[in-house]
Design a protein around this nucleic acid. Structure first.
Lengths: 220, 220
DNA sequence: TCGGACGTCCCCCGTGCGGGGGACTCGGTT
DNA sequence: AACCGAGTCCCCCGCACGGGGGACGTCCGA
């Protein structure tokens, strides 16, 4: 059975152009054309096409908002491809966050649009190369380890160990038990950590450790 | 002038296959074939091709390591496309982090490999659709706001305000000055925050706030 | 061989902190 | 009217904490 497609764009000319492209493919069937985002949402809910191709700029509800509404429905099985004339980073992030299966520029060659629909239908995703480039850069920094915080290199191994335990909100006595040393020893380490890092008290130490990424916040 | 390409793969058969593909394109010139990662790095440094196509599994130095060495050189202008038989998330992350311009599966149709080289050469990037899908999912969660931490809804507006100041490592006296209230008042708020959240002391409160994303760590 | 860094343990002392009370004002609900 | 939650201020008490000292052993490099 053919893949069903919904087209959403406020320019009738562009819609008929895309429909013509799909009509060249026997296994692709364009089951609806709409001119705004709200209509796209309702028609997707009614017809449940395999793929919805949405322009970002549309009246009443833009393509991003429509995408969010469509994909936030847990019963939905329609994949969403977003089309845009100009790419903006904000658009991309919002689109990907909403779970779009594609983010493409309208300059895309017709045959690639067809292949994009097939890619989306089988559950994969596709991003325009010019956007991918910037996405990688952004993704890389989000993976990059935080730069070594200032002053950390002054600490000995033991002191860093103690700092991590402070950051985990352990008391001196708890740290002592955990390291199997006396609590007076821990006090010494703590004092050295504070003075070496220029911190007033252990509360500042906890903040320092977390802000500088010494403690991994809820693992993603 | 033609685009120059370097091929790196430990299978001679695959190299000659790819070379044959490139030879069908007048504007693509395969300037070198190497069989391991170390050779790839030195040849890229010597020949400075426009694009290097690297297999991930290679002797001596794998494609990821080679990518990192190539792209860590600030004088480098060669773009890197990575090829792999099986995709693993870890591979992808490392590749993107290193700054690769592409991450493709060997199942890729030949004509798409050609187009990928052109995409990379012009500075854009390209990721295999099956990988993109998972990348989006991962990217989305990295953008997702942290879920509302447990217990936070028990706090009044004022108490939340105080909690944020505690998280910023302010002392009771400093919080009092900042809020223009007496320090006895602050003590009351702090006590309520601690008991409502089940925290032992302000140190735990600082850790709680940071772990639950109430305080934005170094903005990316 | 002598230092110096590191890790360990000890004492004193002042104070910020947190728990336990209580009390007052406001605003909104019943 | 009575009530209650939120915000404000006050007192007392115990204690963990942090700064100031000093001391001792080990290991390593000068």
């Amino acid at each position: 059975m053919p893949l069903t497609v919904l087209l959403a764009d406020d320019h009738a000319m562009l819609r008929s152009g895309m429909r013509a492209i799909f009509d060249t493919q026997p296994d692709l069937q364009c089951v609806a054309e709409v001119a705004d985002g709200r209509a796209a949402v309702t028609e997707v809910a009614r017809l449940r096409p395999d793929v919805a191709v949405l322009d970002i700029r549309m009246p009443k509800l833009d393509g991003l908002g429509a995408t969010e509404m469509i994909l936030s429905d847990p019963a939905n099985r329609t994949k969403v491809l977003l089309l845009t004339t100009y790419d903006s980073d904000e658009y991309v992030y919002r689109a990907l966050k909403a779970g779009a299966s594609g983010f493409l520029l309208k300059s895309l060659p017709p045959e690639e649009l067809i292949s994009a629909v097939r890619v989306a239908a089988r559950g994969d995703a596709l991003i325009d190369p010019s956007v991918t480039q910037r996405l990688i850069a952004r993704f890389a920094v989000s993976l990059a380890p935080p730069p070594t915080p200032p002053g950390l290199e002054l600490l000995t191994a033991r002191e860093r160990e103690v700092l991590l335990l402070i950051a985990a909100a352990y008391s001196n006595a708890e740290i002592a038990a955990r390291l199997h040393v006396g609590d007076e020893t821990v006090k010494t380490h703590v004092s050295r950590v504070l003075s070496k890092l220029g911190l007033r008290d252990r509360v500042h130490a906890v903040a320092y450790a977390h802000i500088n990424g010494l403690v991994r916040a809820r693992p993603h």
